[in-house]
Structures are given as C-alpha cells and as structure tokens.
Nucleic acid binder design. Structure first.
Lengths: 337, 337
DNA sequence: TTGTAGGCGTTATCAG
DNA sequence: CTGATAACGCCTACAA
C-alpha cells in the first residue's frame, strides 16, 4: 500500500506538501503541485480513508437502514434511494445501504458503523428496533427517519401525511357513491398503517357513515394476504362495495380475488391501493392509489441529516411533504376517466 | 467520544490492558477483566473502527455492488443477499450494499471504499464498468463476480450455467411438441443474456431445427418490452407456437399480450421465462421458468471472497452451481401437471 | 511557500 | 499477567 510518504519521497518533497496537494490547498506553488500530481499518478496513490477519518473524525458516508429488500415498494424505494444519492453527491457524501433482512441483531451490528464513526449518520427508512432502542440511538448519533417513522423516538422525520392521504382516498370512494367501504390493513403495526386506518375512520366520520370494526381486516401485507382478506369480504352477507387497501400489493391480490369471483371492477366492487408502485400500474385493472414523492423524500432526508451533521440545531423535527391521489379504472369506469 | 485511555483511567489500568480485554486475550486475570468490563459498560465505550482499521489494515466489511434496485429480480436478489449475509456473519464480516443506479461515476466512487481500504473486498452482482476497468480493479483489489460476470476480466465468478439452463428450457418446449420457437432477448448485452441465446441455438441445433435469426427479438428487459416484442411475433405470418423469454418480467408481458390477442396459453402459444421471480408465480398463468439457487450463490460468493482475503491462491476461478427447470401452466396444460 | 512535529485511537512488541 | 512504547497514515499548527 502506497502512502503519503512514498509519494513525498518520489516527488522530493515532504509528506505535508503532498497532503496539501491532495486537499487542494491554495498556498502551494504551481510547480510543486504539478510535480506532486505526477508522482501521485505514477504511484497510483489512494489516500487511506481510515487514517483520514481517524484524524478528521468524519467520513462523508451516510448509512441507510432498510428492513428488507424484498417487497413491491422496492421499485419506489429505488427512486427514493436515487433522491438520497443525488442530494448526497451534491454535498460530497456517499450513501451505503444496509438491508437488515428482518434480523434485529444484524441491525444492531450495522449500527456499530455509526457508533465507531465509520459512517457519519443514519437514515432509517424503517427499523426492526423498538422505540426505546431508537430513542437512545437518536440521542447519541445523527439520525433521520424517512417515510416510515416512530414519533416517540424523537428522531426527526420526513414523510407524507398518511392520515390525510388515506382520507383523500376514502373520500374519493365516498364521492363516487360508496357507503359500505371495507379496509384491508396489516397485522404489522407501523406508523404509516396506523395512520392510514385513522384517515379511513376520519373520512367515514366526516361523511356521517358509522364506523363498523368488522369492515377492517388485518392480514399479511402482500398479494396473498390481499386475496385471503378479500375472500373474507366476499363471503359476508352485507359485503362492501369498495375496498381500501393499505398497499398496492394487497390491492392487486384484491382485484384478482374479485375478478376470480365473477364480480365486475369497479361496478360491483371498487378497489384502491397505496404507493403507486409498479403493481398498481401493470395488468388490468390499473389501480387507484396514492403517490408519494419518494425522490423528494430521499433527498430531503439526506439534506436534513447533513444539516444535523453541520450542527444546525433549530431544524424542524417533523417535515411533511405532499402526496397525490391517482384515480384509475379500479374505482372509476374507463369511459369516465 | 470515549477512548481506550478513558476506560483505562477509569479502571486504573493501562490502555493495552483494556485493548486486550476488548480482544478477549487469554493472558488477563479474571479480576482485571471484570474491572475493565465494568468501566467499559459504565462509559459506554465503543472502539473506534477507523483507528483499528488503520492499525490492522482490514475492516471485516464486504461491499456488494449492484447496478439497480428496481427490477423484478429484486425479490430473488433479496434471497441472494441473505445468502451473502449469513455466510459473512459466520466469518465475522458485514456486507454493505452499494446500488449504483445506473451511474458509472458513482460506481467508481464506491470503489474508492476498497481503494482506500474502508472495505476489504467487493462482490460485483453486476457492473456498469467495462471489461478493461474491471480487469484493472480485479488485479488490485479482492473481487468476486456473483451471478452476472464478464469472463475476460479474470475476476473469479460464481454463477449457474446459463447456456445449459436455456438449453434445458428450450429442450422442454421441443419435447412438448414445439418446432417454431421464438425468443425474446434484450438489447442489453451481458453474459447471462448472451449465454441464454447460445443455449437457445444449441437446443435447436440438437433437435435439428434450423435457426432463424428473425425468431429472436431484442427489446427492453421488462414487462412493457415483453408486450411489445410479443406483438411483433403475433403479427408474423408464420408465428411461433412457443416463446422463450430471457426474464420473467418479459414473460409476464408476453402472456398478457397473448391473452389480450385472444389466443390460449399454452394451447395456441406456450411461454417460458427465467429466474423464478415473483412475477412468474403470481397471476394466471403461472410461468414455466428456471430457478437459480440464489441463496447459495450469495453464500458462495462471500465464502470465495473471504478465502481470497485470507490469501488462498489456488482457488477455482469459475464456480458453476446447479439450476432447476420449473414447469408450470404456461407451457403444459394444467391437467397434465 | 514549504518542512517539522505531534497526535488522532488502536494494537503489537518487548520488557518487567 | 501487565505496562510502556512505537507505529499505522494522515492532517495541521507552528516554525522557518
């Protein structure tokens, strides 16, 4: 491994001079600069980041924590990650991804990277850890929550207003004439899901439709869960005329189950999803859904984290970005679109 | 930031003693060990990895390079990553993911991490870089190619035999009575795709079916590409009775286009995909495909990289793992399965 | 404009 | 069994 000294020897200068050239210091004569540059190229010198980090105590690396790579939101997360990356590059940072794959101990191990200062901060897209753990971590290290968040941790968050988004979606169903509206939620109790349930209830309330607990089903947040829960709805005496699903994956299972039962979509039963993921756009019927500005979410998360790293104290603790209702043929007849 | 010295002072011992306790050295009396442990806990001491890396010149971190997060192979890659992770943990390593998102410069920047010894080695799942670049990198740093690979780089690889796999798949189509077999490939010229085309040709040759270049279409490797290319086939005078697609995403577009045209699957046209991704398993019809042992691929890649890191010189340069043909209703009538 | 010296937090060597 | 010391590669006062 070639170090500063080697370059210095080759160029006939001192190590500090080489260091200054590496850092583009202004007080270096053009000639020595050229000489050193040549030596650097010739030896293919690369600075040792561990040494630099040890000295400077920051690494310009941000860690992004993710529960799992395998879900249908992935196509959207990819866009979110792009937002993080572009913003990071703009500020001279790199983003590395740490997919925990549902293992809490692994998440703790990844956090060693920030504990031991190998990365400067953490963006939690979601987490396997409980609120207590997260609160402690948030107190000790620079952290941001992006999209999914736990308010009681005190860690700054960037997200859409999930309550309002669900309210908009259910409001749309109500406007298109539905009064019996079912909801397929998940057994997994995270912020976005709890809030979407809340939005559903608020929308009903504002339309003076009594809330019926039996109209919310809780299953797995995937295609098969959607099929299963929908079949429960289809078996009811007084089945809903519309179903609001907390994800597009569930919604796609839902449309499949409905189509399989011989009912028409949206005439006999309307379906709405969430995320505007690729699942909502492919196949028939295209699904009405809510789009999150994922690129912006990612960018803002990085921006936010960097401002924390810079020591800005008075930054907003909770940033909310806008969402968008996307109406498609699963709730409105094609001719009407 | 609390360091060894702080702990040492608190425990009333020297820094080296604390270091030894941290590394579980055998030659330390139980009492001092206990004393030091207590101080460590009390101060919530975390070793500074940069310092340790500087000293020891390895970091026990492996970097996994990935071209993009957003494709339908993702559900399978997630399993592959799990394989990497489990093997890494077994050897005391961590794996971080570096999604390049189609940006070659970003890939080069990520490679700074290994250049500057912040990670010990790289697993390329795929790459934006050309063969020349990769060869240079492979010469300088510990690298492995996993799944996708470029033979001329000289970087060790782990993958299935794509030629044989395609041959098996097309062979299955021939066995089920097809003589006019189309192929939908991609404009993107990577090893797996080139090899699958080769397997297609070999299968035809062995069955004495003349190869017709017009029977291979080249499009985008996604759902929409599948629809587009299939429509080209459907418009042909002498259209194929079976189509072999290089990915499940293409194959799903293909089945949609065929179903949309009113033809029956598999009676009028059979369809085969590749990867056994979630796209092949959801919806109707379930698609005949090839399954790669992705978990094993990931594990072996890490195993391989670690043995290189240990200095083992005489390791196999090209490891091939088995694949599996999965026959489903897109090629064989349901009753026959 | 350049060089010298000290130290960042660890670990390994050597002496006790 | 434990402590002192040097060194890893880099950066930055300070001195020249």
């Amino acid at each position: 491994m070639v170090s500063l000294k080697d370059v210095a020897r080759k160029a006939g200068v001192s190590a500090s001079t080489v260091s200054r050239v590496m850092n583009d210091s202004s007080l270096i004569s053009p000639e020595t600069k050229a000489k050193v540059r040549e030596a650097i190229l010739e030896l293919n010198y690369q600075p040792n980041l561990s040494a630099r980090n040890l000295r400077c105590s920051d690494t310009k690396i941000i860690m992004c924590m993710l529960v799992s790579l395998s879900n249908f939101f992935m196509t959207e997360f990819s866009e979110c990650f792009l937002g993080m990356r572009d913003m990071a590059v703009k500020h001279g940072y790199k983003v590395i991804l740490c997919p925990v794959e549902l293992n809490r101990d692994i998440e703790r191990e990844y956090l060693d990277l920030v504990r031991s200062r190998l990365v400067d901060g953490v963006i939690f897209v979601n987490s396997m850890l409980g609120g207590d753990d997260l609160r402690k971590i948030g107190k000790m290290y620079p952290c941001v929550q992006c999209s999914e968040y736990n308010e009681e941790t005190g860690i700054p968050s960037i997200s859409i207003n999930n309550v309002q988004a669900a309210k908009d979606l259910v409001g749309h169903l109500i406007e298109t004439g539905h009064r019996r509206i079912g909801m397929i939620s998940s057994v997994y109790r995270i912020s976005s899901i709890i809030q979407r349930e809340e939005g559903y209830k608020q929308a009903l309330k504002e339309a003076r439709i009594p809330f019926d607990p039996g109209m919310i089903k809780y299953g797995m947040n995937d295609y098969n869960g959607g099929i299963e829960m929908t079949n429960q709805f289809l078996g009811m005496d007084n089945r809903p005329t519309a179903i609001f699903c907390i994800s597009d994956a569930i919604a796609r299972g839902c449309t499949e189950a409905i189509a399989g039962s011989g009912l028409r979509i949206p005439e006999d039963m309307a379906v709405a999803g969430f995320d505007n993921s690729i699942m909502s756009r492919l196949y028939w019927p295209k699904i009405t859904t809510v789009s999150q500005p994922v690129y912006e979410l990612g960018g803002k998360a990085v921006e936010r984290l960097i401002s924390i790293l810079k020591g800005d104290k008075d930054v907003q603790n909770k940033i909310v970005v806008g969402h968008q209702l996307i109406v498609r043929e699963s709730t409105v007849k094609n001719s009407a679109l």
